[in-house]
Design a protein around this nucleic acid. Structure first.
Lengths: 189, 189
DNA sequence: TAGCTCTCCCTAGAGGTACTAGGCAAACGA
DNA sequence: TCGTTTGCCTAGTACCTCTAGGGAGAGCTA
């Protein structure tokens, strides 16, 4: 009986990779066990249940994306920051569809995934450095930006834009122009 | 052996109701059979498989939402139309979380669900009546509006706004103000 | 009305998944 | 070298999807 060297970290990493390959939806404890050449029951020594596995993949994805966003935002402000963040977001979803899907699970704010999500929201706030919005407009803007990014990427992935010939990249680029203009000229309450 | 009177229509309607109650994710053929007081195998005379059931629920939800949107848009233009559509969208998601989740499945454009989705996109275009945007800005705007609505509702439902005290309704209202301003003053390419 | 057919739901069963309980052996620490 | 711990095992329960084939009620036909 050769030991497979399973650890939580390797498990979650493999689950994330598997999600990108076969879809987050299809990542099961059994499928993951097959990856490691091990019986499904063996994994329950490392994770409590399938739900914890999914939450850990979500936390991994949120952390990875936050890291990339932080790097992209470094030294940038205004529209440059906006475009950099948005590109990182959309590219990550393209590159890692399974991880991106994992991020959409309902998240307890006090879990590790919840902390990663908060860090994520704080980074979105960093986009606004060059725009000088007061509160509560800043929070409203953060929510709107996040919504637009997530909504666009989500609809694009689901095929929601496929029935019209207009290039999806072009609409994305124009959407960022519009968001930039909106942030520069935020209407008074 | 009393006949339960199962038909595809009643099945899909019950599945949608069940989705709103226990979550779309938890709607299984078995659970649906229990609702009808029938063995799971009996349902396979009416639906091909679980996938078809899910697609039919998605089509039902898209059609219902399109109907409501059409009614809300009748006789309205400009910001009034924008707010009416957005409210219908968000309220529907609140009222029918299971049906809303069903709409997020990947949809073949040529299926009934795909046709409902296209009708949906056309209705979003009707919002723009009062704003007089030329193509391709119109398509870009439709995509941006749809993205923002979906993204906001989706993040709200997933609890993404829960970690900040700012009222979610207030941010929503301000987001609509910003979208209105953006449509009125669409930046040139 | 008697019989025939069709439809609807049944049982049985194969195969997959989540998860628990308990066992055995490899790896590690004293 | 000898416990002890750790990691993976088998066995088993429960639930899910879906197929095959059987029986009985409902409606059509003569």
């Amino acid at each position: 009986m050769v030991r497979a060297g399973v650890t939580v970290e390797r498990l979650v990493e493999a689950a994330a990779t598997l999600a990108d390959e076969i879809g987050f939806h299809n990542v099961t404890v059994s499928a993951l066990a097959r990856v490691f050449g091990v019986r499904p029951a063996a994994l329950y020594a490392h994770i409590r249940d399938a739900e914890e596995l999914r939450l850990r993949v979500a936390a991994l994805a949120l952390t990875e994306l936050a890291d990339r966003a932080a790097a992209a935002l470094a030294g940038r402000a205004g529209k440059e920051a906006l475009v950099a963040f948005a590109s990182v977001y959309r590219d990550y979803a393209k590159e890692h569809p399974g991880r991106y899907a994992a991020m959409q699970v309902e998240i307890d704010p006090r879990s590790p995934a919840g902390l990663a999500a908060i860090r994520h929201a704080e980074l979105t706030r960093a986009i606004l450095r060059g725009y000088e919005l007061p509160e509560p407009a800043q929070t409203d803007a953060v929510r709107m930006l996040h919504s637009t990014f997530h909504g666009y990427v989500s609809l694009e992935r689901a095929g929601g834009f496929r029935h019209h010939p207009r290039a999806v990249d072009a609409s994305w680029s124009r959407t960022l122009d519009v968001l930039d203009a909106a942030l520069k000229n935020w209407p008074p309450a």
